[in-house]
Structures are given as structure tokens and as C-alpha cells.
């Protein structure tokens, strides 16, 4: 059986093709505004191309993510917590909890023995937008995303607010104004983002700190992951397809 999953996030749309329990194609693009439906199709086409199959071979398409309703060609849509849990179990069979940290949302869900979501927590509205924030701070600090990912923990005197993005951005600009090094500010904003994600994670009781899967775009940011691990004592499993987890979960649901 061949199915497809589309994850329309705040910033990027991800598509995967799943054939008999194996990911055979991936596609990715900018989500956008007016052209969201077209961008979803472009990501889907990319995934089809990388899988080397035609759209006619796909039996079912399921969408997820904040813009799941914009994927006009999807047969069904599923909420993010469900797809994250399905993907976590698929990518890491003994996972008991999944954390999805993306451009806008941080989500944590325990996974019941039957593979369904248990306890779910999503960031408070004030703590939204951490992935997007790190992206545009990189742009402002003239650092590549790789350099952001390699940012060392900032010294104690270089800190920004971990309350919300507007405060953190102002604090970062003040640090810049006081001649702090861009790399140190990168460490400071990463720590503030991790602190906000950690507060969401702390909303629930994690059953096993050694079997937590981290997915979403921020899983690729090593500095963020390290700061989050220090704050929560969790040792994360980060699958290779972390960024595509939502789409994989959707494709798995399409297949079941």
C-alpha cells in the first residue's frame, strides 16, 4: 500500500510517501500565504518525484499541521498530536513520549501502550513562535542555521527574557547594542527558546526520561536540543526524519 502524508506547518510544508511501512519519498517547501494549496502540491510533487512514482499510485493522502485544511487534495486531516505520536512509535518503536518542537508550536504527548496519545500539552499562547524566532534571529545576527545550531552556551551575563518572543527580541537587540558577540547572543536566544519549550514539557509527567522522541524542525538545532536536555534531564532520541515526523504520521494514518 502506498500512501502520502502532508504536514503544513507555519513556515514549511513537508510531504512524504510511504510504501509498506517504508518512507520512499520526501518533499519540502515554504508554506506561504495565498499559494498554500499550490505549495502543498509542489511539496507533494517533490515527494512523488523523489519516490519515482505517479500521483495515481497513491491510495490515500492525509494532511496535518496548522494549515492542514489548506491541503485541498488530502482525503482527510488529522490533528498534530495524533500524527506526532504515530510517527514517534514508527521511528522509534519503544518511545513512550514525543516532543514536537516547530516554528510556532511546542507539543508534548505521552504514548499509550496501544500507540494512541495519552496526556497531551501544547505551549501556552505566550510561548508560541520559538522556531520562527530562532530563524529570524539567525538572519539578524548574520549567522547561518548551522552556526546557530553550533552556538555555545552563552555566559551568565549574556541572557535574554525567556518569557516571550517580543521581550526576547528586544533583549537580544539591547545586547547587540552593548557590543555582545553575535555568537553569544545566539547562545542566549537559544537558551530562552529552550526554556520556553521546557516549560511546556514540564506541564506533564514524562513517564520515562530515556525514551522520549524529539521531532520537528528544532530537533535539527543541536544547541537547542542540548539546552533543552540540560533543562529537562531528558535524553532525546532524534530520528533522522525528525523534520518529516508529522508528515510520516499522517501517511501512517492514511495506511491504517
Amino acid at each position: 500500500m502506498i500512501t502520502a502524508g502532508i504536514d503544513m506547518g507555519l513556515e514549511y510544508v513537508k510531504a512524504v510517501i510511504l510504501k509498506d511501512g517504508k518512507v520512499i519519498g520526501r518533499g519540502r517547501g515554504h508554506s506561504g500565504g495565498a499559494a498554500r494549496a499550490a505549495n502543498a502540491e509542489a511539496a507533494y510533487d517533490g515527494a512523488l518525484k523523489s519516490a519515482g512514482i505517479a500521483a495515481g499510485d497513491i491510495q490515500k493522502v492525509v494532511s496535518t499541521g496548522i494549515g492542514k485544511h489548506d491541503v485541498t487534495f488530502a482525503g482527510a486531516c488529522r490533528t498534530e498530536s495524533v500524527t506526532a505520536v504515530k510517527a514517534a512509535r514508527f521511528l522509534c518503536p519503544d518511545a513512550t513520549t514525543v516532543v514536537d518542537a516547530g516554528a510556532d508550536e511546542t507539543l508534548i504527548s505521552t504514548i499509550k501502550d496501544d500507540g494512541n496519545p495519552g496526556e497531551v500539552a501544547i505551549n501556552q499562547k505566550c510561548a508560541a513562535g520559538i522556531g520562527l524566532f530562532l530563524n529570524y534571529m539567525a538572519d539578524r545576527l548574520e549567522l547561518s542555521l548551522e552556526e546557530m545550531s553550533a552556538a555555545a552556551p552563552a555566559p551568565a551575563e549574556c541572557r535574554v527574557s525567556d518569557g516571550c518572543v517580543p521581550f526576547a527580541e528586544l533583549d537580544a537587540l539591547s545586547l547587540l547594542n552593548h557590543d555582545a558577540a553575535p555568537a553569544e547572543i545566539a547562545g542566549a536566544v537559544t537558551l530562552s527558546a529552550a526554556a520556553r519549550a521546557a516549560s511546556t514539557i514540564n506541564d506533564i509527567t514524562v513517564p520515562n526520561l530515556r525514551s522520549v522522541v524529539l521531532c520537528g524542525g528544532l530537533a535539527k538545532n543541536k544547541a537547542f536540543v542540548k539546552a533543552l536536555e540540560t533543562l529537562t534531564d531528558i535524553a532525546f532520541h532524534i530520528p533522522e526524519d525528525a523534520e518529516y515526523a508529522g508528515a510520516i504520521g499522517a501517511a501512517l494514518i492514511a495506511a491504517s
Partner: peptide, 16 residues
């Protein structure tokens, strides 16, 4: 009130 709220809400205006 807040730009973080406004951003999340704006992106939520799309769709169904």
C-alpha cells in the same frame, strides 16, 4: 495585545 498572539491568530485565519 501582543504580536506573538497576533501572529498565531493570523496564521489561524486560513483554512476552513
Amino acid at each position: 495585545t501582543c504580536f506573538t498572539f497576533a501572529l498565531t491568530e493570523t496564521l489561524g485565519l486560513f483554512g476552513e
